[in-house]
Amino acid sequence: MPVIEVDKLFKEYKTKNGEKKVALNGVSFDVHEGEVFGLLGPNGAGKTTTIKILSTLLLPTRGSASVLGIDVIRNGEQVRSQINFVYGGEKGVYGRLTAFEYLSYFCVLYRIPRKQQKLLIDELITMVGLEHAEGQQIYTYSKGMIQRLHIARSLINDPKVIFLDEPTIGLDPVGSKMLRELIKSLSKKGITFILTTHYMSEADELCDRIVFLKNGSMSSIGTPKQIKEECNDLNVFEATIQLFDQSGLENEELISVNDLQHITESYKTIKLEFKKNLDISELENVLKKYCQVIKIQRKEISLEDAYIYLMKDVE
């Protein structure tokens, strides 16, 4: 039985000037126990709206959703004791409190028996690596430390499902890696994660399955591998070149240059897409009209390539 079931979820907002805006348009998916499930898409695609509905913070206009078999619309209170959530950024904390005090407050909000509180807080603080800063006021924390504190808070009620809304936003690479490792280890313990992120490499590394949302609707769903395979007709190449006719290359009808990086003043690497299904030698011949080709290779399609391909017509 799936841990999360979402069926034809529809959410419509009224904007300040009275117009109606569709945030979700018939989204349906299932998530299984212990899965890390990614909700990906551009800003305004409906990722946060979906997470808010599932975490009982928003009511849908139509459709149904359940977490652990409990209806999130009718029985939100029952769902709350079994889930938790973390969102990115530095908000949601009380700067004057220490990490211990902050977690102690949430222990009361989650009705953790008083005798268990200290042990639990110590355990959580150690798990997220904040022992050294336990007694420091939160306003002195870095973004990474605040994010780790949010993770600790989200584990206070031993949740079965955790919703993560852009948890690594603004974190340095070390902080992001630490958080990813934590998510992986918790998912191995059977906790189900719903994750939104704009970092495709992060989604590729963490997610068992992904859904791409576009303008409130589902565009694709599957494992990262399946989604990349959906884009097999993409002919992405990477070439190292010495360019002598940039405008000619830019106007070439057979290829489109996606990314151009300067290696030195005269040498560059380009990531390009061949618009017809031609082989690498034919591409090299096209390129030779505008540059000297040092090296060329077919590039394995990344999740980012798939994302750009699938989201190219987003409004």
């Binding site: 975490s55 009982t56 913070l57 209170e77 709350r80 004791s81 889930i83 938790n84 959530f85 969102y87 950024g89 908000k91 949601g92 904390v93 009380y94 949430f106 009361v108 909000l109 989650y110 009705r111 808070r153 009620n157």
Partner: peptide, 13 residues
């Protein structure tokens, strides 16, 4: 404003 109202509402209390 502090975005902590979400956290309070999501709590069982």
């Amino acid at each position: 404003w502090n975005d902590s109202l979400n956290l309070l509402i999501a709590a069982p209390v």
